[in-house]
């Protein structure tokens, strides 16, 4: 390696490390705040005395564990619904050349761009007519639908990267289209399915406004709304407790992302770049 290249590489790495520090800081900071004793959050960056009391209080107050369970159920359920629906559609769009395909693609893309807030009233209305208010079914269906457009794009990218020869070979061997899809196509697109599930789970897990408006029952609330309640139900300034709640909400997404990073990245590339 030439001397110039070495210097360049050192400079670039130094810059990127600094950049990563800046990116990381707010996340680390919220962890630090959560270990401070009450009313000491802003006296020093590092806690003068480290404490887990905020976490203990978080789980003592109210039904926070229940909220987390709800977030998991709605998040996973929504992601599963999205993945199933989007996979089928993406397969159709990637493999068949049917009439109206262009229109359907444009329609789905257009649906990604609607501002969602005012939609909540009609959704509330439909849900109440169907007797679905405050049920997991409602949240799973709503989350399931939210994720569909992006997920179709992700899965379409994956399907298009599979050589068609495999399916043709299966067809020659006498497999029905359904068998081909289940036994040949799906196993190859496993990374795509994982990516879709993960991305949608994280989106659903983080959603705040939808559960805020659609859920009226304490036992059915999601963790993000619970966090908001903490901010408003508790007396005075309790930033440390709030930080603990923030951390608890951040951790699952962080762990999933750190362990399964490549699926996330590949999924996003397929969805947004090739779509």
């Amino acid at each position: 390696m030439s001397r110039r290249k070495l210097v360049e590489s050192v400079l670039i790495n130094a810059f990127l490390l600094l950049f990563c520090l800046i990116i990381l800081f707010p996340v680390v900071y919220s962890f630090l705040v959560s270990f401070h004793e009450p009313k000491t959050a802003f006296l020093s960056i590092l806690p003068q005395r480290w404490t887990l009391e905020n976490y203990a209080r978080l789980f003592r107050y109210g039904q926070f564990p229940r909220y987390i369970l709800n977030s998991i159920i709605n998040g996973v359920g929504g992601a599963v619904v999205t993945t199933i629906a989007a996979t089928l559609t993406a397969y159709a769009l990637a493999r068949f050349d049917f009439k109206g395909k262009g229109a359907i693609e444009a329609f789905i893309l257009g649906m990604m761009m609607l501002p969602g807030l005012t939609n909540l009233i009609p959704i509330l209305k439909i849900a109440s007519d169907l007797g679905l208010l405050n049920t997991y079914t409602l949240m799973i269906l709503v989350f399931g639908a939210y994720g569909v457009p992006l997920s179709i794009w992700i899965m379409k990218g994956f399907f298009e990267s599979i050589p068609r020869v495999l399916e043709e070979a299966a067809a020659i061997d006498g497999a029905t289209p359904v068998q081909t899809f289940l036994r040949v196509v799906l196993p190859i697109t496993t990374p795509g399915l994982i990516a879709t599930l993960l991305i949608n789970f994280v989106y659903n897990w983080n959603n705040f406004l939808t559960p805020l408006i659609l859920i009226n029952k304490t036992s059915m609330k999601m963790a993000t709304v619970g966090l908001f309640d903490f901010q408003h139900v508790l007396e005075g300034n309790q930033d440390e407790l709030l930080a603990a709640a923030c951390v608890v909400i951040m951790v699952p997404a962080l762990v999933l992302f750190l362990r399964l990073r490549d699926y996330f990245l590949q999924g996003m590339i397929e969805g947004a770049v090739k779509g």
Binding site: P26, L227, M250
Partner: peptide
């Protein structure tokens, strides 16, 4: 590292 903020919710 660069991707971390993206997986965290806006509210937190």
């Amino acid at each position: 590292i660069i991707f971390l903020p993206w997986v965290l919710s806006e509210i937190t």
